[in-house]
Amino acid sequence: MKRTASTLAAVLCALMTAGAASGQDMGKFIATGGVSQVEGAGGGGLTPWALIAGYGSRDSWGANAHYTHIQTQDYSLATRGVAVGIADRLELSLARQDFKGDLAPLDQLRIKQDIVGLKVRLLGDAVYEQDTWVPQVAVGVMYKKNKGIGGLGALGVSNVTQLGAKDDSGYDYYVSATKILFEYSLLVNGTLRATRANQMGILGFGGDQGDNMKLMPEASVAYLLTRKLAVGAEYRHKPHNLGVDHEKAYYDAFVAWFPNRNLSLTAAYAALGDITVFNPKKQKGWYLSLQAGF
């Protein structure tokens, strides 16, 4: 944990130094940069939004670093990454996911995954176009590379393809539409994702139950209690491609605090459904994410 914190602090320090040198303007309203989604994109915790990461305006850029931890009864997931928003139009993100088993027979399980993301705003402005119902719309792609399985050497398992996945890498494509209604202190978002990923790619891509791209709906709603505090909920539908994984939809209820433009803290209670038939319980637990940037 100390190593993670120091690494993210070093990344953030470098980003802030570069931002100061380039005259980065932090022109967006507070909270309108969103938080860091568990795959690295700007948005909610579970699903990307059409908003571009960072607080840079159309004439500038912004960036952030994040660390997220999810803990259920049997598993934990840590995600760390960085995202850069350019001219409030283009977003680039990089994230590393570390998935661990905490309960026998999978208490030695370790899986890592790298994710590279790209998002482009196509039309609309969720903040400044309050006189129209047209939302901000963005399209994005995530390339995911599973780094293999650790801790199951005694079973001869070292790659997700040995669990039935067709591939250990793949792409997610998505379109998101986000509307902020300042009159009602409300943000609503809908995302449609084309994916073959099993548990976001942690268990590979495709499988014995299906190997085609499937369109999965996702949704978020957030209510601003104050200018710096928001509560909300999210839903993310999932494909079911693996016989050894009765994959179900993800849900969460969250609270996000934005003390200033440089920091945000998100806490949530998440329901993640079944994760493998080896620990056949509906996985539920807490989610905590810290984001720092500009």
Rank of each mutant, 00 (worst) to 15 (best):
M1L: 09
A5N: 03
A5Q: 08
T7I: 10
T7G: 08
L8E: 01
A10M: 13
A10I: 12
L15K: 06
L15W: 11
M16F: 00
A18G: 12
A21W: 05
D25Q: 00
M26P: 05
M26Q: 15
F29Q: 14
I30Y: 01
A31K: 13
G33E: 14
V38N: 08
G44R: 06
T47E: 04
W49Y: 12
A50D: 12
L51Q: 09
D59R: 10
S60Y: 02
G62A: 05
N64K: 09
A65R: 11
H69G: 01
T72A: 07
T72F: 09
T72P: 03
T72M: 06
Y75N: 08
G81C: 07
V82G: 12
V84H: 02
I86Y: 11
A87R: 07
D88T: 01
R89Q: 08
L90C: 14
L92G: 14
L94N: 09
R96D: 00
Q97C: 09
Q97A: 13
D98F: 02
F99Y: 06
K100M: 08
D102F: 00
D102W: 00
L103C: 01
D107S: 15
D107K: 15
K112E: 03
Q113T: 13
V120F: 10
Y128L: 07
Q130D: 12
V134C: 03
A138C: 12
M142W: 03
K144I: 06
K145H: 15
G148I: 04
G148M: 07
G150E: 02
G151I: 04
G153L: 09
L163F: 06
L163V: 04
A165V: 09
K166I: 08
S169G: 02
S169T: 10
Y171F: 14
Y171G: 02
D172E: 12
Y173W: 13
V175K: 08
A177P: 06
K179M: 05
K179W: 09
I180N: 08
L181V: 14
L181M: 10
E183D: 13
S185A: 15
T195S: 15
N198L: 02
N198W: 03
Q199S: 10
Q199V: 14
G204L: 10
G206W: 07
Q209D: 05
K214V: 14
L215V: 06
A219F: 15
S220E: 15
A222S: 13
T226N: 04
T226S: 04
R227T: 13
V231Y: 05
Y235D: 08
R236I: 01
N241V: 02
G243L: 12
V244S: 09
V244Y: 04
E247K: 03
K248R: 10
Y251F: 14
F254E: 06
A256W: 02
A256F: 04
W257H: 08
W257R: 02
W257F: 13
P259E: 05
N260V: 03
R261H: 03
L263W: 08
L265C: 12
A268Q: 00
A271E: 02
A271G: 02
L272K: 11
I275K: 13
T276Y: 09
F278M: 14
Q283F: 00
G285N: 09
Y287N: 09
S289W: 00
Q291E: 07
